[in-house]
Design a protein around this nucleic acid. Structure first.
Length: 478
DNA sequence: ATGTTC
C-alpha cells in the first residue's frame, strides 16, 4: 500500500489529515491487497484534495473501483453540510446520472438457442448507438423541458413503459428541483436529437442470464431466479449532461474568488450549496439526471418491443427490477456523529446502497434494502446486490459502481485488437455487435479492474450483499 | 463519458 496510508480494517484504509495540506477530515477507502496493486497515487491524492473542500462531513470516501478522474476520483463519495458546504460538478462527473437498469424476461437460455444472433442484431437496429447517435423520436424544445422536469414519467406518459416501471427507479425516475432555465441553448441543442440513444464508451445494452443465485431469499423478493434471461441498460445523459457540466464548471470557476474558496486543484471548482451559482448548477444537474432516466426508459421500451416480437412474450412479462444512478449529487438525511442531518451527497462512479428501512426505496423492497446493480465490463459478469445498514453507517449509503479502468483508452487501442476480441468473445458464446471492431478494443475486459474482485470487496466490507451473478450472452455497444 | 482538443 502507498506510504502514509493507515489500515483501519480488513479492507478499509485511512488517508490521514495532513496527507495533503488543509484537509478538514480524513479520507477513507475500501480495497483488497490485489486491487491495491493497481491503485494510482494520483487517485488517492484526489481523495485527499476533496477533504479540503468547505463543509465536508465525516470522511472523503472512495469505493474499491477508485481511479483517477476529473478533480474528484471516480468511485468517490463526499457529503457536505447544507449551510457551510459546497456543490461541485467534479464530484458528479461529466456524464450526469450515468446509471444502470436491470429487467427480467420470462425466457431461459434454451429459449434463445439459434436466435441469439438475430436478437442482438434486432436490438442493434432498434437502439441507436455510438458517439453522436441520433434518436428516432422527434421532440420539440418544449418537450425537452418536459423531459428535464418529468424524467422517466415523460416517457411513460407517451406510452413508452408503465407506471409500475416508475416505482422501480431511484427517485421514481425524476428528481425534484429541475430548473430548465439553467440549461444552456447549446446543451438543449445537443439533447433534443439524442433522447433514447445509448452512446459509446462503456455504455451498453446487454442480454444476460442469472447464472448464480447467491442469496435465494432476496433474489425471490427482487423477482429473479436461476437461469432466467435478463437484460441490462447502462447509459447516461449523453451530450446534454456533458454540456451542462462544461457550462457550469466555467461559471463556478469564475465564482471561486467571490466566495473566498481556495482549491488545491481547479478541477474541484464548486460553490456554496445555497448560492446563486450552486443552486443553478444543482437545477441544471437535475435536468440532466432526469433526461438520463427518460433515456434509459425509452431504450428499455425499445428492447421490450424487440423481445416481444421475436419470442412472442407479453410486454408486461419483462419486469424492471430497478434503475440506479451512479453519477449524481443529492440532498439526503444521514446520521453524523449520532445526529441526523441533511447533507449534499456527491456520488461519482458510486451507487446508492440504502439498507432495509431507509427512506426513499420502493415499498416492495423496504424490508430487504434497495437493489444495487453493478455492470461488468464487456464479456464479464454483472452483479445484483442489495444495500445494507453498514453502508448507511460508513459510506452515506453508498457502494461501488463497476470495474474501474486500469488502462487508458489510447493504451487499450495499442494493446488490444478489436476483431480478435470479438472473435474470442464469440468463442465463449457471447455475441457482440458494435459499429466497428476498433471501438471494442477500448472496452476489452483486461483494461478494467476485475469486477468480481471489486464486488467481493464491497460484499466482504458489508457495504452491500451479493444477491445474483449474471453472465453476458450478447451485447450491443457504441 | 463527450459533435472523442471550442
Amino acid at each position: 500500500m502507498l506510504e502514509g496510508i493507515n489500515k483501519v480494517g480488513d479492507l478499509e484504509w485511512e488517508v490521514p489529515i495532513g496527507y495533503v495540506p488543509n484537509m478538514r477530515v480524513p479520507g477513507r477507502f475500501f480495497l483488497s491487497p490485489s486491487l491495491g496493486e493497481t491503485l494510482e497515487e494520483g487517485a488517492i491524492r484526489q481523495l485527499a484534495n476533496v477533504a479540503t473542500l468547505p463543509g465536508i462531513v465525516k470522511h472523503s470516501l472512495a469505493m474499491p473501483d477508485i481511479h483517477w478522474g476529473y478533480g474528484f476520483p471516480i468511485g468517490g463519495v463526499a457529503a457536505f453540510d447544507m449551510t457551510e458546504g459546497v456543490i461541485s460538478p467534479g464530484g458528479v462527473g461529466f456524464d450526469i446520472n450515468c446509471g444502470v437498469r436491470l429487467i427480467t424476461t420470462p425466457l431461459t437460455e434454451a429459449d434463445l438457442s439459434g436466435k441469439k444472433r438475430e436478437l442482438i442484431e434486432s436490438l442493434f437496429a432498434a437502439v441507436p448507438t455510438g458517439v453522436g447517435a441520433k434518436s428516432t423520436l422527434r421532440v420539440s424544445n418544449k418537450e425537452l423541458s418536459d423531459i428535464m422536469v418529468d424524467g422517466a414519467r415523460w416517457a411513460v406518459e407517451r406510452g413508452l413503459g408503465t407506471s409500475a416501471d416508475l416505482a422501480r427507479c431511484e427517485e421514481e425516475g425524476a428528481m425534484p428541483g429541475a430548473q430548465p432555465e439553467t440549461v444552456s441553448a447549446k446543451a438543449r441543442q445537443r439533447g433534443v436529437p439524442q433522447i433514447g440513444t445509448l452512446g459509446a464508451g462503456n455504455h451498453f445494452l446487454e442480454v444476460q442470464v442469472a447464472r448464480e443465485i447467491v442469496n435465494p431469499e432476496v433474489a425471490k423478493a427482487f423477482g429473479i431466479s436461476e437461469g432466467q434471461v435478463c437484460f441490462m441498460v447502462h447509459c447516461g445523459s449523453r451530450g446534454l449532461g456533458h454540456q451542462v457540466a462544461t457550462d457550469h464548471i466555467r461559471v463556478l470557476e469564475g465564482a471561486l474568488s467571490k466566495y473566498g474558496i481556495q482549491l488545491p486543484d481547479r478541477q474541484l471548482a464548486c460553490a456554496p450549496i445555497d448560492s446563486p451559482e450552486g443552486r443553478a448548477y444543482y437545477g441544471a444537474m437535475v435536468c440532466a439526471a432526469n433526461y438520463a432516466w427518460a433515456n434509459r426508459q425509452v431504450i428499455m421500451h425499445e428492447a421490450r418491443k424487440v423481445f416481444s416480437q421475436l419470442f412472442g412474450i407479453d410486454y408486461d412479462e419483462m419486469r424492471l427490477i430497478y434503475d440506479v444512478a451512479h453519477n449524481v449529487a443529492k440532498f439526503e438525511r444521514h446520521d453524523v456523529d449520532g445526529a441526523s442531518m441533511e447533507v449534499c451527497v456527491h456520488r461519482k462512479g458510486a451507487t446508492r446502497a440504502f439498507g432495509p428501512g431507509a427512506a426513499g426505496i420502493p415499498r416492495e423492497y423496504a424490508a430487504i434494502g434497495q437493489p444495487v446493480i453493478i455492470p461488468g465490463s464487456m464479456g464479464t459478469s454483472s452483479y445484483l446486490l442489495r444495500g445494507t445498514s453498514t453502508a448507511m453507517e460508513k459510506t452515506f449509503g453508498s457502494t461501488c459502481h463497476g470495474a474501474g479502468r486500469v488502462l487508458s483508452r489510447s493504451k487499450a487501442k495499442k494493446e488490444v485488437r478489436g476483431r480478435e476480441l470479438r472473435e474470442q468473445l464469440a468463442g465463449e458464446g457471447i455475441v457482440v455487435r458494435a459499429h466497428s471492431d476498433a471501438a471494442l478494443a477500448e472496452e476489452a475486459p483486461e483494461v478494467y479492474k476485475p469486477s468480481g474482485e471489486v464486488v467481493r470487496v464491497v460484499h466482504e466490507a458489508g457495504l452491500s450483499d451479493i444477491v445474483v451473478r449474471l453472465e453476458p450472452l450478447g451485447v450491443i455497444k457504441g
